[in-house]
């Protein structure tokens, strides 16, 4: 099979934006493509707020509520490699090596002059812009200053003061660490391989439109005999990130992680074989 002779998998990028990307993966097996997708969703490490120490909270939302909302805010994680997992760190609780502190302190003072003026909007929106990070490389994703992420709305006289600790983690543990919002994954848009059965009432062609990815492939010829040995060849993957890192970085990191995993597996297996050879002599 020429797939293995051709020097391995290939990626051709169809579009690349700041927080989304489309590419075609060829020359590889379905399992590898799917593994890549799964790793992108669940195992690419990012930074997210993991602990919140609340000093004052007189807002309408409860402490856990605000903590949960803070956790969901995507943090820029371009430098995530620099930071260690807390479990691997030598410190007891958390330290600058394994975490980043963010502070938030908003106090809405009562303005007695405009207190009874119904025309003045006295609601203060506390957003991700109010989170002050000690480390500039890890801060809330806020490329669009007009639409920061709302944390809580406050009224005069209320105060919110807290300290957040952002940690490195993967989405296997909690979805807040997922770098992607969605990963679309498709192959064989014409259903040439017949991996799926269309549910039809009258006419397949009329009732089921082809996806946009079909433009990349040739339509199936109805007279052509069905090749039951055929394997999927092209995988159309599209991903959208939370903004915590560049989409191409997500893909690259995912590939690295896959390599590391396979590498780790190989080393482990080698060791096993060596042990076996030593023990049994074959």
């Amino acid at each position: 099979m020429d797939m293995y002779n051709n020097g391995g998998p290939e990626v051709s990028i169809r579009s690349l934006k700041k927080d989304s990307m489309k590419f075609v993966l060829t020359n590889t097996d379905l399992s590898v493509a799917n593994a890549l997708r799964r790793i992108m969703i669940a195992e690419v490490p990012t930074m997210a707020i993991d602990m919140v120490e609340i000093e004052t909270n007189s807002t309408v939302l409860t402490d856990e509520f605000i903590a949960h909302r803070l956790g969901m805010i995507p943090l820029t994680s371009f430098d995530v490699d620099r930071i260690q997992y807390t479990r691997d760190c030598t410190c007891s609780h958390y330290c600058p090596n394994c975490s980043v502190e963010l502070h938030l302190h908003v106090k809405v003072t009562v303005d007695y002059e405009e207190m009874n003026d119904p025309n003045v909007d006295k609601t203060r929106q506390v957003t991700s812009m109010d989170l002050i990070s000690v480390d500039d490389s890890v801060r809330p994703v806020s490329d669009d200053k007009l639409h920061p992420i709302l944390i809580v709305k406050m009224r005069p006289g209320q105060e919110l003061k807290l300290k957040c600790v952002a940690k490195k983690g993967v989405a296997k543990e909690h979805a807040k660490w997922s770098p992607v919002y969605g990963v679309a994954f498709e192959y064989d848009p014409y259903n040439k391989l017949r991996h799926s059965h269309y549910w039809i009432e009258e006419d397949e062609k009329l009732e089921w439109g082809v996806s946009a990815n079909a433009a990349e492939e040739t339509p199936v010829d109805p007279n052509e005999p069905f090749d039951y040995n055929a394997k999927p060849e092209k995988f159309y993957i599209e991903l959208e990130t939370s903004g915590c890192m560049k989409p191409e970085d997500v893909v690259l990191r995912a590939m690295t992680i896959m390599q590391d995993k396979l590498g780790g597996l190989q080393i482990k297996l080698d060791d096993e074989f060596k042990e076996d050879t030593q023990r049994w002599g074959y």
Partner: peptide, 13 residues
């Protein structure tokens, strides 16, 4: 887990 969930062609879980 989300990655084990079935998803639609748009990536919706």
């Amino acid at each position: 887990q989300q990655e084990d969930m079935p998803f639609s062609d748009l990536g919706v879980c």
